[in-house]
């Protein structure tokens, strides 16, 4: 029982991280209609940008917004220089381009920061204990941060003109164009939003464990699984998807070696594809 609760805690932490990644993947899919295979490496980029800022002597939480800005700018630049031109031909070409981008980004990060594990802060945190359940302060920070960010995204999507335009375009591009919604501006904001969320996901991932150039790639599969579970193109579904996948991955370690955590995410995803490819939630769009 104790094990179970402890793993549940880890699962919620992992789920928070997956959620932030999956919202971005879902938004990008909704607007641009392709699965962004470089998203994991955008997370890595965000984490290492934060590391660069931290190395100047700033605390992680201050580094986070700066890293978000850096990553968002790079995401927009990638889109404008490469994806944008390929969009005009066929969206499916974007898949292979983003796959190449994933490897390119990873190599670049490895060249700049080296191939070894790194951490934001050395030393051990005093954990909180409730009975036998251990929770690190960083865990609370990660879950709290994810909740705040999800709320911000919700406010953005439901209460701002640009957020609504994003949902509109994701619902029906042609009709959005018929309303005069400027597609390219919406696309740009999509990358900004997805880039910021990926940065948070990457930073949280680095806080939870360590930073490594392959960290994002390794978590890409669970992020996709969360996205599909929530219904690809539905950012709100990503929250549920992220939590289910995160918790399932951690709980699976009770019966399986931890190396197979991504396999658990994958198995759930495949089950979903067979049973209900449109995601957990019913309804239109």
């Amino acid at each position: 029982m104790i094990d179970f609760l402890q793993l549940l805690v880890y699962g919620v932490v992992l789920g928070s991280i997956l959620t932030l990644g999956a919202i971005g993947v879902s938004l990008i899919f909704g607007i641009l209609r392709f699965a962004h295979f470089a998203h994991g490496d955008i997370m890595t980029l965000g984490a290492f940008s934060a590391l660069a800022v931290v190395s100047l002597g700033l605390p992680v939480l201050v580094a986070l917004p700066i890293a978000m800005a850096i990553t968002a700018v790079i995401a927009v630049v990638i889109d404008q220089t490469i994806y944008r031109r390929l969009r005009r031909t066929a969206p499916v070409i974007l898949l292979i381009s983003s796959f190449g981008m994933a490897l390119g980004l990873r190599s670049l990060i490895q060249l700049i920061f080296g191939p070894n594990n790194q951490v934001f802060a050395k030393g051990i945190q005093m954990p909180y204990r409730w009975g036998d359940i251990v929770v690190k302060p960083d865990h609370l920070l990660i879950v709290g941060g994810a909740i705040v960010l999800v709320l911000v995204v919700h406010m953005f999507l439901s209460h701002t003109k640009m957020g609504k335009a994003m949902r509109a375009m994701s619902d029906n591009v042609d009709l959005a164009a018929a309303c005069g919604i400027p597609a390219e501006r919406v696309v740009m904001w999509t990358w900004i939003l997805a880039g910021c969320l990926a940065t948070a996901a990457g930073v949280f991932l680095g806080m939870d464990a360590q930073l490594h150039p392959v960290m994002g790639w390794n978590i890409l599969l669970p992020v996709f699984a969360a996205t599909i579970l929530g219904g690809i193109g539905k950012p709100y579904g990503a929250i549920a998807g992220g939590m289910v996948i995160g918790i399932a991955m951690e709980l699976s370690t009770m019966v399986m070696p931890p190396v197979y955590k991504p396999a658990v995410a994958f198995a759930i995803m495949v089950a979903m594809l067979i049973w209900r490819p449109q995601g957990i939630f019913k309804g239109q769009a």
Binding site: F37, L95, A225
Partner: peptide, 11 residues
């Protein structure tokens, strides 16, 4: 085909 992509990379 996006799903195929995700499924194949997963496998």
């Amino acid at each position: 085909t996006d799903y195929l992509a995700i499924a194949t990379i997963g496998i």
